[in-house]
Amino acid sequence: MIPFILRRLIQIIPVIIGVTLATFLLTWLIPGDPTNVLLGPDASEEARERLRRSLGLDRSMAAQYLIYMSNLLSGDLGQSLSFSRPVADVLVSRMANTALLAFAAIVLASVAGVAAGTWAALRPGSLHDRGLTIVVLFLNSMPSFWLGLVLILIFGLQLRLLPVSGMAPSGAGLLSLAAHMILPTITLAAWSLASIARMTRAAVLEVINNDFIRTARSRGLSEWRIVLFHVLPNAIPAVLTVIGMQMGFLFSGAVLTETVFSWPGVGLAMFQAIAIRDIPLIQGGILMLALIFVLINLIVDVLYVYFNPKIKLN
């Protein structure tokens, strides 16, 4: 197991380098003089010149990338225009809020998705199976921000049951935090829930037709025990891959959800950055979320092997 983890760690190094290269190249996409965008239109020519030199804009692409990387490794992601603070500071201070939302959403999506998918697969073609298919279709065809707006409309504005904006004020207690989290969590989880339910249904269907399930039944084991200890452990690896993918999407999907609910996370900061073309912040946010995505997928790979003893570690 340990050598496998090490090997995977080594394998992601080129991917991480590629990710930094791609984010670096975003600056190169900026039309015209990048300092115009990076510093804002009001910056002095002096400041521009300083930035040009520090980014190596007068030098070769490779040199620019090396400068970018060395800044990156020392934790320097540039200066945010919209927040007038270092990008790294802004992102780090908001990461916890985004992570909180993403984790709540993945827990909700996984638990509800696996349960719904399994339930449907146990009786294929039944009423609730067909119902799930339709719900999955709609959840997968719905922009999350629209779902968020509809939830706000129903639970916040009409029924006045739940807060619709922001995070709980500091010191308001866990209950208030939880109340503020409910709608954003559901909104963020919806798409993933549908994907996980769909994958679970397919995986369970595949497992349940295996001979060993019949063996388990022929030995007098109860149905729930068979589902819990024989079906799910064999269906989980496939589901886990989807959950890992979704986890990464949830961190980035936060851009939309946080915007709708004014949730003070990385995503909201990036939305605010878009309006004034605060490229360094967007660049830093993308890099950070992409690295998290890579890391999560690594963890999922390891778990996949752990849950699936049949895979030979080579």
Binding site: V19, G253, V255, I279, Q283
Partner: peptide
């Protein structure tokens, strides 16, 4: 390695 929407956002913004 990039979630789709994120990269699209970056390219579009740049």
């Amino acid at each position: 390695a990039f979630p789709g929407i994120l990269l699209a956002l970056g390219i579009s913004a740049a």
